[in-house]
Write a protein that binds this DNA or RNA. Sequence first.
DNA 1: TTGACATATCGGGAATTATCGATATAATAA
DNA 2: TTATTATATCGATAATTCCCGATATGTCAA
Lengths: 103, 103
Amino acid sequence: MKPLEPTEVFKALSNEARLQILEWLKDPQAHFGPQGGVELIEVGVCVSQITAKLNMTQSTTSQYLSVLQRAGLIHATRIGKWTYYKRDEEAIQAIASYIQKDL
Amino acid sequence: MKPLEPTEVFKALSNEARLQILEWLKDPQAHFGPQGGVELIEVGVCVSQITAKLNMTQSTTSQYLSVLQRAGLIHATRIGKWTYYKRDEEAIQAIASYIQKDL
DNA sequence: TTGACATATCGGGAATTATCGATATAATAA
DNA sequence: TTATTATATCGATAATTCCCGATATGTCAA
């Protein structure tokens, strides 16, 4: 994984909708319905489910997920037609730690 | 103190120069020359000193300090003609904690 | 292959941010 | 009072971000 750029991470976090997505992904079972047989916890949540909850278009959702991914906060796994997004807990803790110790 | 709005805090942090200022203010003695008799550690650093280090105008510096202040990350103390800015360590830890536990 | 669906990307208009110079305000000094 | 210095605010332009609809791409099913 590439080193987190604090500025880029903060830019990614400085939007209500993206923050929302990250919070939902923290506990997928609590926020998303079951999706086929794939384990929600293992691979994450697919774009359609996130789009459904977020009150925005598929296009916007996809772009927001890209922003979060480029910031290193989530990562994607493609399985068949679906792309599942999941939080990178280490990266999130790393940013907390950066603020706590280095900022 | 008012409750920190995560989004507003992250917006404040999503700029290289403002991040820089916060880092400098972490250890004022290491980054700023002594200023008159006022204790750097006690009240903070005045706008002119920050402007001098930042490669930007006084206007921009002042506005960035406002942004950081509105986000709750620093606070100002006016003494005579000078306004001294100092980090709010609690607020900074609070944001680290928000990311670590709630985000 | 063709069709259908999931996701990504492109192009754009509106809103916000970055940054400046000019000017206003506040406090002290003369 | 007036002049000087420190900081804040105003007005503006360029750059960036927000968010959309349209379209492209990738994958499976028939």
